[in-house]
Nucleic acid binder design. Structure first.
Lengths: 208, 208
DNA sequence: GGAAAAAGTTTCCTAAAGGAAACTTTTTAT
DNA sequence: ATAAAAAGTTTCCTTTAGGAAACTTTTTCC
């Protein structure tokens, strides 16, 4: 996109090329199987011997005339020494998605709990790798928690304002001031309390 | 971020790949399906509605009385919004874990480039899913960039102070003020410039 | 080019999958 | 505890998958 720099061309001024309809992957299993077979340079007969499946059956699967049972698929994967995901991960197409979701200050999706006022960010997008949210830490005593908070994935938090104490299962409690951050495994028990005059505001991001 | 990655690469800057070491093939497809169903707290009837499969069929699959056809497996995965490998990745290996890494304000690892002053956070940890850093946006003109910045993964940014313009390949430029945030696919070209009097400070997190 | 062999497809049959409904077990409500 | 409802299983029947063999197409070799 050199033009953008050289002239003043904005994205909305550009006309996108018609790149053909991207088909949503219905997974052409037969086609995929044929690719694999060819890549090993095998005939149906040879695959038949390796997998114990009839030549005719293999032909029909490759031509999408029948839908193989799981049993058959297991014979295929073990006979051909491949694993199942391989059967479905054919052309690892790195789709240049262009999703973008802006969340203005204070305009996230509110999500209050007994100990936090969460404000979920980027909620217009689903299927994302990270889940960002701002949280007002209302709790001021770890007695507010009945137990450690613990869940899958990893978590990063940054103190935006105020001051908190970060408790965790395997470490001493530690105080965090504005600008401080911590990265931790979220299946290690953890919890927060505000210790500043005003409730602390933090940015939280989870990935799993 | 392209520059960031292309220059010095430290372990703590790397994002851990999904450990796809799945060689295990659960012969217990039915059991696995039941686990998934229970985890969503669904009844056979509800799964039936979601997938279009008969209640009886689902029961038989769960009890290993029949071997579902690929067609049926596709209905299962699309109806339950899971992907196929998930059906075969049963024993979720709970990774160990109690890592924690605190970064005090301004005490991250400096990493200057021509357009940004990056301050890498949580650099004591390697193999993490997210890579967090604060960046001072020094650039004030998109002519400072020779081309779009573009890399794998997804990115989230939050303006900590100042004001920026966020340029991206498929959208109009947009101004972001303190507290505003944006989530986007990083393989969509993107770049930032400061438009406040002082250079803007942002929090940036990448995951791939 | 014309067998003959090899590779692949189609047919035909039986064995198994998938659906509707009957039946059994478990949960909820009274 | 008992009835009613919900969840799950089994039966019975129709449709479809899978294998053996016949058939068609492609390749090999003279």
């Amino acid at each position: 996109m050199t033009e953008l720099i050289q002239q003043d061309i904005y994205p909305s001024m550009l006309i996108s090329e018609d790149q053909g309809d991207e088909k949503i992957e219905p997974v052409k299993l037969g086609q995929r199987l044929k690719e694999i077979r060819k890549s090993f340079d095998l005939t149906l007969e040879e695959v038949s011997k390796k997998t114990g499946l009839a030549r005719s059956t293999l032909s029909k699967i490759e031509n999408e005339q029948i839908s193989p049972t799981f049993q058959v698929m297991q014979k295929l994967t073990s006979g051909l020494q491949i694993d199942i995901p391989q059967l479905f991960a054919p052309p690892k197409q790195v789709r240049a998605t262009g999703r973008r979701d802006i969340t203005r200050n204070e305009e996230g999706k509110p999500h209050p709990t007994s100990t936090y006022e969460h404000e979920l960010l980027a909620t217009q997008l689903s299927n994302k790798k990270m889940m960002p949210f701002k949280s007002l830490v209302r709790s001021r005593d770890f007695a507010d928690y009945s137990d450690w908070i613990r869940h899958d994935g990893e978590e990063f938090l940054l103190v935006l304002s105020g001051k908190i104490t970060f408790f965790s299962e395997f470490y001493e409690p530690v105080n965090l001031n504005e600008g401080d951050s911590v990265y931790y495994d979220a299946n290690m028990g953890h919890m927060l309390i505000s210790i500043s005059e005003k409730d602390a505001l933090i940015l939280w991001i989870t990935a799993s």
